[in-house]
Nucleic acid binder design. Sequence first.
DNA 1: CGTTTTTGACCGGCGC
DNA 2: GCGCCGGTCAAAAACG
Length: 222
Amino acid sequence: MSTASQTMLNQSLFEEQDVSSQLGFFSFPSNFSTTLPFVCNQPLKSVTTLPSSLAPDTQTTLSESSTLKQKEDITSHFGQSQLLSLQRSSASLWGWGDVNDCMSSKRNGENYLGVSAIKMKKMKARRKVREPRFCFKTLSEVDVLDDGYKWRKYGQKVVKNTQHPRSYYRCTQDNCRVKKRVERLAEDPRMVITTYEGRHIHSPSHDEDDSQASSQMNNFFW
DNA sequence: CGTTTTTGACCGGCGC
DNA sequence: GCGCCGGTCAAAAACG
């Protein structure tokens, strides 16, 4: 990979990120208390929250310019303890720059044009992109929060030292590779951790019957 | 009968 | 190199 890619990497790691376009429109159950989104497996940069003191119809938008200040505010407001990140997941899996090396090292022989090679190429190509990731935790009875997008479950895994499985979802929209995973916090099973990865290439496709439901929900724009 | 979920297999990265 | 672990695949089952 070239230095241009490295530049991109650095930008994606260290620039403020506007996660509002990724989160879109969220509908939380009326009994949710606090959510605390933060960039996952990256330096803690983009942080915002929904203080429970906000009126239910308040719209909160996370802007690029205000996140650092917000972080300070939130840190002082909620205390540092709640800003612990989920570094325990394997961030190092998503390294850059070694895709071509991997491919060329396997190029000696038959599998360069073989079907398996193509398949491998696909997987590698998918892995090379380090999509923006962020996660947050929510006090919620239900595991999967309604975020306006349609998801298809493609896997479930029991991760070590946890009793609750982690579920893997992919956006059902064609050509949209956004993924999310949902798990319950080991230390507090009442908390749901939702991790998003990637950016939607489309707008949320809410079913058109949400006129009733919104009266029971607290709706937010991120 | 098309779509989604389930679930064991498989794969690659990482630590030892 | 080997085993563990997290993430994904894909066939079968379940669902509506």
